[in-house]
Amino acid sequence: MNTRLRTAFLASLVLLTHSQIADAHIVSARLGDFYAGALHPLMTLQDVLIWAALGLLAGSISAASGRWLVLVFPLGLCAGLALAAHAGLGTPSPLIDAATILVLGLLLVAALRIPVALLCLIAFALGVMRGAVNAGELLPQTDRLLYAAGLASAGYVVITLVMALALSFRRPETAAVSSWRGIAVRAVGGWVAAIGLMMAGLSLAP
């Protein structure tokens, strides 16, 4: 592992471990409900992993596939939030979260060229799921419109940046999956799948 990669990995680890300390209600009191909606998912390991893996998956396929997610994923988040807030859509169990991470990791490992329509469907479904989870932080006094705008903005920013970074990393869109860049993306997928597997094990533990 080169120094830059190691530094990035350590920094990510530190961010992820420290993120649990933060309190969404403090964010809300300090910066209002827009930023509470934007920052809450970034403090949750499941959201960070699922969003990043989805962006990586879309970005590693092609720009043509990925660009639809710029809108589809945030819309899914809003739909999930609305369904949870008004129609009582429940939050998925930890096992479903873990399974989702595992499947996304495996899709990255397999380097499948998923059709655009299916990718959009997956992204929307994941958006709905994570939107519903993030609705758990809504308090009676929370301004839901601002919270939804913040959540969707965060989804848009994260998914757009990760897709573009993945696309730039892979460089030529027709690059063979056997190139070292392709293998690196698949290796990251392996890590994501491994985390999903560990989380599944933890959730099944008595």
């Binding site: 757009t160 940046l161 897709m163 970074l165």
Partner: peptide, 12 residues
């Protein structure tokens, strides 16, 4: 600036 770069890269 990062988002502008990303949009260009994705052709969005």
């Amino acid at each position: 600036l990062a988002l502008i770069w990303a949009h260009r890269r994705l052709g969005a």
